[in-house]
Amino acid sequence: MLELNAVTLAYGPVMAVREASLHVRQGEIVTLIGANGAGKTTILRAVSRLLDPKSGAIMFEGRDLRGVAPDRVVRLGLAHCPEGRQVLARQSVRDNLELGAYIRADRAGIRQDLEMAFDLFPRLRERASQLAGTLSGGEQQMLAIARALMCRPKLLLLDEPSLGLAPIIAQEIFNIITNLNQQGVTILLVEQNAHMAMRTAHRAYVLEAGQIVAEGDARKLADDERVRQAYLG
């Protein structure tokens, strides 16, 4: 479904990711783990076309994303929930969710999905008319995920959804990720919390200083001595 082929990414002269190749098949949860600064966010930003690759190709459903405008990517069915829960702080929870459905015009369907989002995250329903900036960290993360789902994506990119959350709330988020996947959403999950990510995902990639150094079945990789030492402590 998603395929990166020897993708090299840089910020000006600063190299961030070197010849990374990875793929995500329909129906999978794939996780990309790595230390802070490894280049995980950079890879997701390139998939969403916020960043142009220096070389290599990014394909989504067989289509080369080169030259596609960033606001067009989501129309192809690819939603990106960015790092640091980028909710629109100055707009209400409901407006955030409705903007998640910006590309859609089917009002009835949007209203239905809004209800589904509220069922999935009941705390958002209670705070529907509150400004998003006034939510707690965990609530903002829920809002960011719910908003990304409002476009009915085929593939969901999640960038560190558990960052800064209490363990119990992080666990809740991972459960929801598993549920979403069972409902048919393919997921590429970027995490520093390797333990939880490896338990949730089918397959995993390990990124180290901009290069993919290991890949494979998430459970097997979790038993790998090197990976254990470096990421699972």
């Binding site: 916020l50 960033p70 606001d71 989501v74 990106h80 980028q86 629109l88 707009q91 903007l99 910006y102």
Partner: peptide
């Protein structure tokens, strides 16, 4: 408020 987030939403 946030151009990058806006474009991720298709704006």
């Amino acid at each position: 408020e946030n151009p990058d987030t806006a474009s991720l939403l298709g704006i």
